[in-house]
Computed example of a mutant assay.
Amino acid sequence: MSTGPNDPGETGTSKDDGERTGAAQSSSEAGGAALDEQRAAGGENPETGVRPASQDGEAPMAATRTRSGMFGVRGTGDTSGFGGLRLPGYAPAPAERPFGGWFDEIADELGAALDQRGIDREAIRQITIDRGEITFYVQRDRLADVARTFRDDPGLRFEFCSGVSGVDYSAPDGEPVESPLHVVYHLLSMTYRRRIRLEVALDFDDPHVPSVVDTYPTADWHERETWDMFGVIFDGHPSLTRILMPDDWEGHPQRKSYPLGGIPVEYKGAEIPPPDERRAYS
């Protein structure tokens, strides 16, 4: 395991007692490789539409496609102003060593901590670095073990889960996407002033993932909201009920398959349809 912050052999990291909060090494982007180099290692080229793979031939776990319009609206009288929106798709490729800055240190510390706890290192499916952030893609069945390792290991000490959220990477045109439903966990180490992300990829026909409430009690309401909006079932949650929508609501509003605009909105007796059902004035 790593040495303590006062050991003479450890210098130039965010663990130094003399370093103020917000110094260079407390910033993952400043401590890692140049942002342009990180992005050049993965992601779809917006001009050619080609997404490079890593040196091992791996493709990013998160799907990437060019985004056209808003919520997949096509050929309708959309008056929302988003009908002509077109953004290039982008997903970072798997990162490769050396990561740069404290990223290598934390990856080594995690590997040693997993070995010490008898957890297979394959529990970490992929590591990506993008926009100065490091993300660990975790096997669903080992999420609870990995989260507890990040919290309890003396060299990691990610004591706080600041948020749990969902992402639907489904293609609006119906193109098949492998494991399109993702759950993202934002962890903060108040001890070492570091932030990381954990991510789990799921399928819609099996949207189960272990709850991390036992490890991070703050995830209680966040997991409820992710269930409400995306339909992710957090096994072991103490009370997985709706938190934003009524208890008898059908569906999960932030899935790509949910109708644009949800349901028609009633306002002073008038009914305002969703944007994709409105007339176009041109």
Results as ranks from 00 to 15, higher is better:
175 E>G: 11
241 T>Q: 12
161 C>T: 07
271 E>T: 15
266 E>G: 10
233 I>R: 13
74 R>G: 02
238 P>G: 01
84 G>P: 01
161 C>K: 04
148 R>H: 04
28 S>P: 02
22 G>A: 06
104 D>P: 11
79 T>L: 11
227 W>Q: 00
161 C>H: 08
252 H>M: 01
78 D>Y: 06
45 N>A: 07
119 I>M: 04
36 D>R: 10
101 G>V: 04
133 E>N: 13
240 L>M: 13
124 I>A: 02
240 L>A: 12
220 D>W: 13
146 V>H: 04
168 D>S: 12
165 S>R: 03
170 S>N: 08
99 F>T: 00
193 R>M: 08
9 G>D: 06
259 P>M: 01
47 E>R: 14
105 E>Q: 14
252 H>V: 03
195 R>K: 13
238 P>R: 00
121 R>L: 06
118 G>L: 08
187 L>Y: 00
262 G>D: 02
235 D>A: 14
225 E>I: 07
280 A>H: 12
78 D>L: 05
223 E>M: 10
162 S>V: 12
24 A>F: 14
122 E>A: 15
8 P>K: 08
49 G>P: 06
155 G>N: 03
257 S>I: 13
123 A>G: 00
91 A>I: 02
118 G>D: 10
261 G>K: 03
155 G>D: 01
87 L>C: 03
155 G>R: 03
107 A>V: 15
61 M>W: 01
185 Y>Q: 07
236 G>D: 03
215 T>Q: 05
9 G>A: 10
195 R>E: 09
217 P>S: 00
181 L>S: 02
80 S>I: 02
247 D>W: 01
93 A>Q: 04
223 E>W: 08
177 V>C: 04
132 G>W: 02
11 T>W: 12
48 T>H: 06
216 Y>M: 00
158 F>A: 00
76 T>C: 05
214 D>Q: 08
218 T>V: 09
186 H>N: 14
12 G>Q: 10
278 R>Q: 15
92 P>Y: 00
42 G>I: 04
6 N>K: 15
68 S>A: 14
234 F>Y: 13
81 G>D: 07
205 D>L: 01
179 S>F: 11
174 G>C: 11
235 D>L: 05
36 D>L: 13
65 R>C: 04
53 A>T: 15
122 E>G: 15
170 S>W: 05
101 G>Y: 01
140 R>F: 05
196 I>F: 00
14 S>H: 06
173 D>T: 11
12 G>M: 06
244 L>W: 07
246 P>S: 04
5 P>Y: 12
7 D>C: 09
19 E>Q: 13
99 F>D: 01
140 R>V: 10
70 M>Y: 15
106 I>D: 05
48 T>F: 07
73 V>L: 02
250 E>T: 14
2 S>M: 08
109 E>W: 04
184 V>C: 05
129 I>K: 06
80 S>V: 03
74 R>Q: 12
26 S>R: 14
86 R>D: 07
244 L>A: 11
22 G>I: 07
241 T>E: 14
7 D>M: 06
20 R>G: 09
233 I>E: 09
84 G>K: 09
201 A>R: 02
